[in-house]
Design a protein around this nucleic acid. Sequence first.
DNA 1: TCCGCTTATGGAAGCCTTTCCAATATTTAT
DNA 2: ATAAATATTGGAAAGGCTTCCATAAGCGGA
Lengths: 345, 345
Amino acid sequence: MSVTIYDVARRAGVGIGTVSRAINGSPQIRPETKQRVMDAIRELGYTPHTMAKRLATKRIGIIAAIMPFYTGHFYQELLRGIQKSLTEFEYDLLVHFVDKPEKLNAYLDRTLSEKRCDGLLVISMDIPEEYVDQLQNARLPVVVVDRGHDRLDCIQVENERGAYLATQHLIRFGHHKIGMISGNRHSEPAKQRYQGYARAMREAGLTVKPEWFISADMLETTPKIQQNDGFNIHAGRVAMKRLLQMGEERPTAIFAASDILAIGAMRAANEAGLRIPDDLAVIGFDDIELADYLSLTTMQQPMYEMGKMAVDRIMEKIEAETEEVRQFRLTTRLIERSSTRQAGR
Amino acid sequence: MSVTIYDVARRAGVGIGTVSRAINGSPQIRPETKQRVMDAIRELGYTPHTMAKRLATKRIGIIAAIMPFYTGHFYQELLRGIQKSLTEFEYDLLVHFVDKPEKLNAYLDRTLSEKRCDGLLVISMDIPEEYVDQLQNARLPVVVVDRGHDRLDCIQVENERGAYLATQHLIRFGHHKIGMISGNRHSEPAKQRYQGYARAMREAGLTVKPEWFISADMLETTPKIQQNDGFNIHAGRVAMKRLLQMGEERPTAIFAASDILAIGAMRAANEAGLRIPDDLAVIGFDDIELADYLSLTTMQQPMYEMGKMAVDRIMEKIEAETEEVRQFRLTTRLIERSSTRQAGR
DNA sequence: TCCGCTTATGGAAGCCTTTCCAATATTTAT
DNA sequence: ATAAATATTGGAAAGGCTTCCATAAGCGGA
């Protein structure tokens, strides 16, 4: 039924090995012969059978990515970077979105029991300990993205440092009463950003009032507030409202652990009649599109680069078949816009 | 090196056919035999070789989706629907994001010359005429999503009708001077939504002033304004600004062809000191997350359902190997929030 | 116990490549 | 012109699974 290399070989009057060599650009073939084969291919409308090729070469040409089902610029950019690099390698991207953490396990089980990809990108998720061994035993190259890991390759942004710099930026502008709004604390980046905030405060000799820190898990547990792991606009707004209830005691500047939280916070401030940055300075984290639109100062994460790097690294692992583990950290960059400014002016 | 069914067969003391039957749940096997095979599989740590299976069965278990590189809730929800349904069928999703239309062609070429998926979802993109024949000849099941097509299966929302109803909603509230803000006019949905708007106006005996219609392609061609095919917040804002320059002649209500445009428009209105809905009523299209947050009345598109349906349909085509072409249209739903209200109150 | 029918089992053949080795053609050096 | 070295070529074997057909085992009835 379908045209195979045997048909092509017969038509071109050569052997199947020669056809294969012609197709795969082997130098071991005379140009005339190659031309003859190519003609035959065109005449017969031959297309190679991908699965047979994959069986023979043991190379699948697919990288799988597992990631949470979150909205947002962050993942969009990350995917852009991933796609870009993958296209260069002529690999395809298999994506699997996960809404509940349990589903990660199910997917890992499936990936381990059927080899359907050459490598795996685990994005913004924590791999349960028991799977780490399994992944290593299976010799499946894995790169963890947006999370740290001590036994697997990982690529992440310097969350602690970024938060530290963001907070320092506010301090430099003369703020003393600096609050922080965060998504759910259990996530790794949330923790690290808190650390950075606290360190900057400490080093500047400022007190970190516990009531100035509000994370999504401290708010109501409605679905709206909890979506995206607490990194959402509603949480930012509600958290800010709560801070504003403190009256005179309220912070004069806010470090938000993500731009979308910052935007929610800005909204609450506006609703309360406060002007930004005069009455309240706000700095975010991410640099999403809206941040630019709303003139939000923020710490930019190199998301696109992170995606590219993740792919480059996994390809390196696939090709070198190395077991070596490397941790990468990318730096953040301050994007100064008008939501922050010299205090008291 | 790796464990094959031959190893399993030997260990279990059966033939390879029996192992295959045990694995694939064939009824043609004695329970005890099956148990013995399963034990052997566990003892040896056997995992089936996916590519060999695919070669033998000619079934790949992968659906590919091509879509533009746009941000947003729309695609997020669509993907959720796709993923959900695909998981039920135990198929994987290969995604390919495209930034420039030319790249669609490159991808189609590749898809046609190597069979790497059982079916193809083309999302929010127009397939060049010459590829339509090729796709049909290759007998690759295709479903076009978010666009209409006369020779291929397609699933789309009733854009014309949705826009008609949205406009009617404004008319019902007593508005006579209704403007429209749109993304680039060349896209199919943009055209259809304009048609619906115009029809509602016509039927109500209202004049459609040409200067009340502004689309992104009529604005500056900066990257910001042109991103996402003109469906972005900047375009909405700039378009609204322009409408407001008309002074007394300006529309009192706006139908925006997407929520994000509506949000940009609302921003411009606020900046000009106008209150919504009192000074200006705004209705959007999509029902993205922010719409709820900002209390924007909108026409909701059933994006999740669209995704599910697309997969269900493509699976149907794969299984039935039918050539039959079907067009589906999903209805929109008015979500009334506070950006629209009885006029003049 | 034997026959005929049903159910279970073994394994060759087929799916379509790539790769490797032996064989042949060509070129180079002498 | 000829041996030696090099460039091409052909095709068997391998890759691991499913499937189909022939064979064997099991079972009920006579």
